[in-house]
Every structure is written in C-alpha cells, then in structure tokens.
Design a protein around this nucleic acid. Structure first.
Lengths: 173, 173
DNA sequence: GCCTAGGTTCAAAATTTATTGAAACATCAG
DNA sequence: CTGATGTTTCAATAAATTTTGAACCTAGGC
C-alpha cells in the first residue's frame, strides 16, 4: 500500500508537467472535435487524435494525458477507440516498455473504417427485419405506395451490403 | 400497465384515441432510429419519420402524437427538424386548418440534405482556421511530416467545399 | 518469486442532450 | 372582435453519454 501523499519524500520522479495546448493546436483540435461530433465520437477521442496529428513524433501515454489535461481513464479509452478503428498505430521501441502513438498514415482510410464500423452492423442487423416488414405489408394488402417505399428500402439495404466490402474493404482484404 | 384504452367507449369527438405502434411499425422505427443515431438525430425524430414512412396517407399532428405516444413539444420540434431538412412535406387540404404530413418522395435526397446541413457548415467554418494552422506550422519550421499532414487536410477541405455544391445541390439549384 | 512502471476497468460524478408540458402565440370561422 | 383550434416556445426535468479516479491487472526486470 502506498500512502497517497507524495509531496517530496525521498527520490521522486519530478512530475513531468506538460504544456497545455498551444493556440494552433487548439484550433486543429476544435476542427476534429466538430467533425467527430457529427459521427458521435466523444470530444476526448477527437482531441487525442488531433494532438497526435499535429505532433512531430509518436507520443506516449503520459504526454497525451499531460498535454490534454484529461484523466488516465479517458486516455486509455480514447486510445482503445482509436486503435479499434485503426486510426492510430503504436510504435514500440526496442528496450522501451512504453508504447508511443502516432496517427495511421491515411486519414481517409481511418474515416472509412470508422464509418464502416458504424453503418455496416446496422445494415446487417436490419436486413431480416426489413424483409419481414415488407412481407407483412404485402400480406396485409397495404397501399401500393407503401409497398413501393418498403421495397426500395430493402433494395437499398441489400445493395449497400453488397457494395460495402468493395468500397470499404475490411483490414484483411 | 397501459392507460385505459377506450376503444369501445362511444365515438366521442373530444378524445380520439390512437393505437400504439404495431410490431411491423416498431421494427421499421427501430431501423430508422438506429440509422439516425449514427448521425446524432434524436429518437423521436426518427420515429416520426418512420411512422410517416409506413403510413398510407399523410398524417396530422394529433395522429403522430397519439400513435407514438410522445409529447406535443416533441412532435412540433421533430416536424420542424424534418421540415428544415426537407424530409417531409405538408399537404394542406383546402378548407382544412390542420396540416398533414408525408415523407418527401426521395429518401436519398433527404439523407443528402441532412448530411449536407451537418458537414458543410463545419467545413466552411474550419477553412480559415485550418489555413492558419498550416501557416503557423510552416512559419515555425515544423517537421516536414506534420506540414504534409496539415497541407493534405487543407487540400481536402478545399476540395470538399468545391465539390459540395455539385454533389449536393442546394434546394434552389 | 516479488516489485513496480504502465495500462485497463468500471462505478460514480459530471456533463450534455432530449423530452415534457404549460403557457404563449397564431389563424381562422363566425 | 372573440373564441376555438392548432402549433410553437422554452424552462424544467428526465435520460443518455462522457469523464473521472481509484482499484485492479499484467508484463518484464531483478
């Protein structure tokens, strides 16, 4: 057990103390935050990405936390999100224990992966339900107008699912 | 427990009672709700759209409220949103005071309008800021890698703004 | 094994966003 | 003009989401 107060007893690693974001960094972060907002990506995630994006080399966990002034938990979760969506890469130097992070080369690819992960599951999951809705309407002799709408929706869904792997090839392709 | 349904209690004009959504309607609503969620559109808005989408004719305010079981305020705001994004049309019958609503013919066009309204303003607003960030980086002699990233971001932004009016023509075009 | 730097988890707290409903407003018929 | 109907507004409330931080893992050096 560690006593919580570690003022200046014995050998203390000097708290690195990171600079807050500079104006130009804030500007870029704002841009990413707004764009991310459209897709429902949390502010902290966008900020982490923005910071890596304007930084010259890969940054480690503590730098990210320090410069953004957010909690460990947020950094961890944010990096997990970015990792899961293939938006960042870790560079592990040999002999070093920490991981250091940088944005993946192509922002375009990153966005595509993100969209893919959001839209595809929804389309897949909806497929059977939509078919059922259409069948239901036909069976009940709904208005032709409604049948037509529901048919179109089904066709779209199918085509989107067919096209998806071509336009947005998954990691392994 | 459901509120007492007075289906059988005489047809009185004072309190028209509406049926809750049927299973097939719920299914479609769920689909729209999920899709809308990706773009941050509230549940109630998606539900309204879904209801209009499966309904044979245009529906009036009270029908929408009654069948979805949501508040007047939500219906009003939801319809405003859908109107603003050109996703619904009102059909005013002559001599009638109420407006009746139906989805616009093309769902595709509706989605495009929606995206347009979300993304374009962000791109426009970001333009000067992004240029400033790049200029800043160049002036401070940032790493070529960073300069390159920021340049690409600027080019993208510009091109997106140029292309936008072509791909997503505004109402008047 | 033991220790600890490095990172994750997750319940609680903070924040943001959506919904409600009563009051205000608007429009039309009489 | 007046009253009734139909709709909007918006402050209060409810619901959903994000952030925090302390407890908890995990791998690697000793």
């Amino acid at each position: 057990m560690k006593p919580p107060s570690e003022k200046s007893a014995g050998r203390r690693k000097s708290r690195p103390s990171f600079e807050p974001l500079q104006p130009h960094e804030i500007e870029l972060a704002d841009f990413f935050v707004r764009m991310a907002g459209i897709l429902g990506v949390p502010r902290s995630v966008a900020e982490i990405y923005a910071l890596l994006y304007v930084s010259s080399g890969p940054l480690d966990f503590d730098h990210i936390q320090g410069r953004l002034g957010i909690s460990k938990g947020s950094v961890s979760q944010g990096l997990k999100f970015l990792r899961d969506h293939e938006m960042v890469l870790s560079v592990k130097e040999k002999g070093a224990r920490r991981e250091r992070w940088q944005p993946t080369p192509s922002l375009a690819a990153s966005l595509v992966a993100l969209l893919r992960s959001q839209v595809l599951p929804a389309l897949e999951q909806a497929q059977p339900g939509l078919q059922r809705v259409l069948a239901d309407a036909q069976q009940r002799g709904a208005q032709p107008e409604v049948i037509e709408r529901l048919s179109r929706l089904n066709r779209w869904n199918s085509r989107a699912l067919e096209l998806a792997p071509l336009l947005l090839p998954p990691p392994g392709a």
